[in-house]
Amino acid sequence: MFGQGLIKGLQITWGRMFDKKQTVKYPFEKIEMFPRYHGRFELDVDKCIACGLCANACPNKVIQLEKEKVDKKQFLTKYIMRIEYCLFCGLCVEACNKDALKFSNIIDMNQYRRSWVRLTLVDRPAPEPTETPEEETPAKEAKSEAAAGQAPGKEG
């Protein structure tokens, strides 16, 4: 009979009408991301040895890092990700031997201006090489500064 298919389609849509909702009201409700989710990058500065493997692994030259030599050790002074060019492929995270660079599951990286998109993970001065006992303190302070000085509006 002609029209049977149409009736069947209507039955399906009517049945689904009283189904449970499939979506969430996004800014107010958020769904949990999976542990492997490729979200915003996180850098553990204590673990990072400024080897630059991540920067070399990147297909798009997203990662720019600057380092200084302090007491025969490389000291990371600047770690900037040009996130506007990032493909989120995860090759940098995979390249990291020290487990310092990681993905978090923060999804909202949107900004109002293009210049704010750039992700500054570390921006700190190198400590004085001669004063060994005080070397720790400025580095720690700078780290908290760097955390505060990340791209503005990171919470939303």
């Binding site: 849509t13 689904r16 499939q22 999976f34 492997r36 492929c89």
Partner: peptide, 28 residues
């Protein structure tokens, strides 16, 4: 209508692939 139905179900597949690879579209 069909469009919304298939896209709803596609999200389940993408959830699975996200679980595996971390991305929903460009998996690498």
């Amino acid at each position: 209508t069909a469009f919304t139905y298939t896209f709803r179900d596609r999200e389940y597949v993408l959830d699975l692939l996200e679980m595996v690879s971390g991305s929903r579209m460009t998996f690498s």
